[in-house]
Design a protein around this nucleic acid. Structure first.
Lengths: 346, 346
DNA sequence: TTGAAAGCGCTAACAC
DNA sequence: GTGTTAGCGCTTTCAA
């Protein structure tokens, strides 16, 4: 109530108040069953009366657990995207879905999820935070082939799980969607619609996910007998999608089908394609990737390859928890199946 | 390197290795100047050799500081917005700007910024995290009038700074922009362009910021002799802006100027207005609020009221730091000046 | 079922 | 300038 110069109550004070030992209070707090129900009630009253809150530092000093895990979004270095890292991160629905999925499994277990953004100026800080034992482990959203963070954390002994296939081999678990299968579905659909000149707008090609989708695209169009596989590299942002679509329209005016490597870019592409006077899907059919909220906000609503991001994040959390509990076990990775969601754009 | 069943090295081990006392190692680690340079070097070698990392729990048990502060985004309860909380939060460039601004002042001081999302299922968790002394204080992004979180945290003695005028009086500092002055600039511009039927799309009217902007709008149009102040309530999302614009066009077909309470909604409104066959700015002039990255991605680029969010977040961090250092001092609040940014939409 | 006592790893007086 | 020592608040054997 008043300006708090006084220290918060300790276990000891609660024990004195209740007339029992520290050990007993500790047992009550931690829900140990072997406590006389009556005593338990006494202690609980004492806790309420004193307004006691356990001191986390003291607890984790002895238990060596913090009951919190980090969600780290990493970017290895500034690579001159138009849009800065933080803006990109907080503008893409992806991170919100990951958070939701991870919370879903962590919360019932009483485990806190703390979010960190590790762009170049902050990454050392974040590394230090993780090393110092502030958290029990980390979910890593690292999307660049040459990101050293995953390897560094593993070497440091911080339990980790990655959000997609790592660019370089790392001794840890990851979760991913079957990228090539997803792209295949999209291209099959476009071809099924009779499109003869199918192109793609890719993500940054230094990201494994973008590479996988491009490789999948090439294989898929080849399977349909299309001899060339036109593509323009984008950056996974809405603005990048606009720029890429403009370039694509200029270089391949005859394009009649586009697979765009994520929904945000697809939204931008849709705008540009229609401003150029082409009808969607009649003149140009468009399919995105993700099935994020952005897909529904597109005009027309976007057909897209669904990635079960929330489930995938939940699985990441699960994998991390077992990794924390059994550090000896060898890493397992889990691949999810994509699904084609048909709306109006293709 | 190998599976780490062994405990990490402690201060004591480093001391033994270097042949000095724990105190000396501690001094070196904490950069205390009164250490013989030679000894310092010896200790540093020992630290490197053992791979020592300070145990944070132990340290903060005695220092009562954690050198980390929380950025908490709060929403009091699920109020049936179309878009769920996490999606809204991770889709709006606002949070990225806040993070960037806060990091800017915190990082040089070696203070970690950890992000928490406190929607209804998570809020109890977050409260517990903050009470338990995991952080030294909190930057609170709480935008609803009836959000109890600020009051609760203050009562608990957690040092806080709010991101805008609180809905209910709370004994703590906040930072805000002069909302009414900002809206005034926008309306003056619209009126200066000769617009006679100026309307507004508001934010959720249970948010102080939205209320202030609507109040400012009413005052401003009245000052220009417009007798009515048409408005439609939006939700600060792109999709909400579209819905609101459709409603506005239906109810006030003669509208020729719109002040939209944030850029994201303005983007949606722009789309709808133009799809309805009106030209921007010729038929309908549009001005947004924020000057976020979304403003630049609009078609046409959006004229908007700039809010210096990064600076404001930096100031929040500053206020919080002094509050942590001098808990006795009475709270100060800081109001920033907005600025009108003219682009193509008005 | 409960209590006593021994630390967890670190910092901060206080002597030397 | 350096070492000794006494805790910080908690959990966890081990006895009782």
């Amino acid at each position: 109530m008043t300006g708090s110069e006084t220290r918060p109550p300790t276990l000891e004070q609660v024990a004195n108040y209740a007339g029992v030992s520290r050990a007993t209070v500790s047992r009550v707090i931690n829900g140990v069953q072997t406590v006389d129900p009556e005593l338990r009630r006494t202690v609980e009253r004492a806790i309420a009366a004193t307004g006691y809150v356990p001191n986390l530092a003291a607890r984790s000093l002895v238990t060596r657990r913090t009951d919190s895990i980090a969600l780290v979004v990493s970017e290895p270095e500034n690579r001159g995207y138009e849009t800065p890292f933080l803006t990109r991160t907080f503008t893409d629905p992806y991170l919100g879905r990951v958070t939701a999925g991870a919370q879903e499994v962590l919360r019932p277990l009483g485990i806190h999820l703390v979010i960190f953004l590790a762009d170049p100026p902050a990454r050392e800080h974040v590394m230090r935070y993780l090393r110092q034992g502030h958290v029990d482990g980390a979910l890593l959203i690292s999307s660049h082939v040459d990101d050293p963070l995953p390897g560094q954390l593993v070497d440091l002994g911080v339990p980790c799980v990655l959000s997609c296939r790592p660019g370089q081999p790392v001794h840890t678990s990851y979760v991913d969607v079957d990228q090539r299968a997803g792209v295949r579905m999209a291209v099959d659909r476009l071809a099924g619609l009779g499109r003869r000149c199918i192109a793609t707008i890719t993500g940054p090609l230094d990201m494994p996910a973008a590479q996988d989708r491009l490789a999948g695209f090439r294989a898929a169009v080849a399977a349909h007998g299309q001899t060339h596989a036109p593509y323009v590299e984008g950056d996974f942002t809405r603005g990048g999608g606009e720029r890429a679509a403009r370039a694509l329209l200029a270089s391949h005016p005859d394009v009649d089908g586009v697979f765009v490597a994520n929904d945000l870019m697809a939204d931008g592409a849709l705008r540009v394609i229609q401003e150029a006077g082409r009808r969607v899907p009649d003149d140009v059919a468009v399919i995105g990737f993700d099935d994020s909220t952005a897909a529904l906000e597109c005009h027309p609503p976007l057909s897209t390859v669904r990635q079960p991001v929330e489930e995938m994040a939940g699985e990441m959390a699960q994998l991390l928890l077992t990794r924390i509990r059994e550090p000896g076990r060898s890493p397992r990775s889990v691949i999810f199946n994509p699904e084609l969601i048909l709306r109006a754009s293709a």
